[in-house]
């Protein structure tokens, strides 16, 4: 990387790293240290292709998602993300939004990285299923079924969420239950 490219790379990282780190934290279920590792790895990859990348932010985000899903698939198959405490029960006043969000956050941390990645893409990034499928390198049907299973898993992890209405994705489960296929 020449000096000019390095300046552009530095400018990009300094301006976008906070936003990228926010996404990384969500992907790791709130594990800040793991998120910083994830982001740093993604940026190293981006630096290696810097002069060939048209949209650096989209590229880094795609690496973040794929890396997180791949890392889980390769090293810790079928393992869930461990959290120090199980989701707390919100008690009688489960209707309070703030408490429900606390419950939800703890439940999200207990999803698999693949499940969490799909939910972050769908509900935080607000991407349509086709775009999620393209980023993760899988079929639209897989995105749909993973979303459905992830929401169901949240409900099973946190019974307090029973007061909530079903999501659109839960109303029409897909019959496509093929495993997520991710290409590095």
């Amino acid at each position: 990387m020449d000096a000019e490219s390095q300046d552009r790379f530095r400018e990009f990282v300094e301006s976008r790293s906070a936003a990228l780190l926010r996404t990384a934290v969500l992907l790791t279920g709130g594990d800040r240290h793991a998120a910083e590792d994830l982001l740093q790895n993604a940026l190293v990859k981006a630096a290696g292709r810097w002069n060939r990348i048209d949209d650096p932010e989209a590229y880094v985000r795609r690496i973040l998602y794929r890396q997180q899903v791949n890392r889980w698939r390769l090293k810790w198959p079928r393992r869930e993300v461990a959290v120090a405490e199980p989701p707390e029960r919100a008690g009688a006043d489960t209707a309070a939004g703030a408490e429900l969000r606390v419950v939800m956050r703890a439940a999200l941390a207990r999803l698999t990285p693949r499940q969490r990645s799909v939910l972050v893409l769908r509900y935080f990034e607000d991407l349509p299923e086709a775009d999620v499928a393209r980023i993760l390198g899988c079929s639209v049907g897989t995105v749909r079924s993973t979303t459905h299973r992830s929401l169901a898993r949240l409900r099973s992890l946190a019974p307090e969420l029973a007061v909530l209405g079903p999501a659109v994705a839960e109303a029409a489960p897909s019959s496509d239950i093929s495993p997520v296929e991710v290409r590095p």
Binding site: G97, R101, L164, A167, E170
Partner: peptide
């Protein structure tokens, strides 16, 4: 509130804290 709305809010809140 639907479960997907709560997912969205919880993620946004967590992101905003970073």
């Amino acid at each position: 509130m639907n479960v997907d709305q709560l997912v969205r809010e919880a993620l946004q809140e967590q992101a905003a804290e970073q």
